[in-house]
Simulated scan of single mutants.
Amino acid sequence: MTLYDDAVHTLKEYAADGDQAALRDVYLAHLAAHPDGVYKPCGAGHLTGSALVVDPARGRVLLTLHKKLGMWLQMGGHCEPGDTTLAGAALREAVEESGIADGLTLLPGGPVRLDRHPIPAPCNWHLDVQYAALAPAGALEAISDESLDLRWFAYEEVAAVADASVVRLVEAARARL
């Protein structure tokens, strides 16, 4: 199975209603129109994979201060040629950006949310498929080259530091825990 095939399958299996169901349909239409829509060179936009690193035992999430955007975000990024699944791409990004090399696992049940946001030309959109990654007990983070900072925030602190998309992701992840 190719990454494209996995993306279509993952999105078709994504249980959603309301705006999330409509967004899922936008993602599927994008992929139907753009077979290269899982990769960054697709000028019409492309899928990305992200994962919110969660420590449910301590009621907190790990966010990265994104180097280019200067915003507190979940870990995530572009799919790469070696990726075979969206979940694998999201987990790879979480490991790379959090520095937690051992023990991160994705929350079962597939993506927790979808988020579509505009990006500067030459591309138009990031079609983010968002997962939650469970941090192992005693996880030690390490700042990557892509981050200015990396910090744990209590669930209730996220709204004060991050934008609404991250707050919605935290809410969705907590609902799934």
Rank of each mutant, 00 (worst) to 15 (best):
E96R: 15
D19A: 09
T84R: 12
D128P: 02
D149S: 09
A7E: 09
R60T: 09
P35R: 04
L11A: 10
E141G: 00
V95T: 02
L11I: 01
P56C: 11
A154Y: 01
P118V: 00
L47P: 00
P56A: 12
N124Y: 02
L31S: 03
A87E: 06
S165T: 07
L169N: 01
G70Y: 05
D102R: 15
A139T: 14
A175Q: 12
S144G: 15
A139Q: 06
A139R: 05
F153I: 02
D6C: 07
A7M: 02
I119M: 02
D128R: 11
E97N: 11
A159N: 07
A33R: 05
E93F: 05
A21Y: 04
D5N: 12
E146D: 14
Y131K: 10
P120A: 02
K68T: 15
E96F: 15
L140W: 15
R60H: 09
Q130H: 07
A21I: 14
E157W: 03
A90L: 04
L69N: 15
T85N: 07
I119Q: 04
R113N: 07
R116Y: 06
R113E: 13
E141C: 06
H66C: 07
Y14I: 12
A101Q: 14
H117M: 06
P122E: 00
H66W: 13
A132G: 05
L104H: 09
W125V: 00
A51N: 01
P56I: 11
Y4L: 11
T64Y: 12
R92C: 04
H9M: 11
A172N: 10
H66M: 05
V158Q: 02
V167R: 04
T84A: 13
P122G: 06
D25H: 14
R116V: 15
M75E: 07
Y131F: 08
C79P: 01
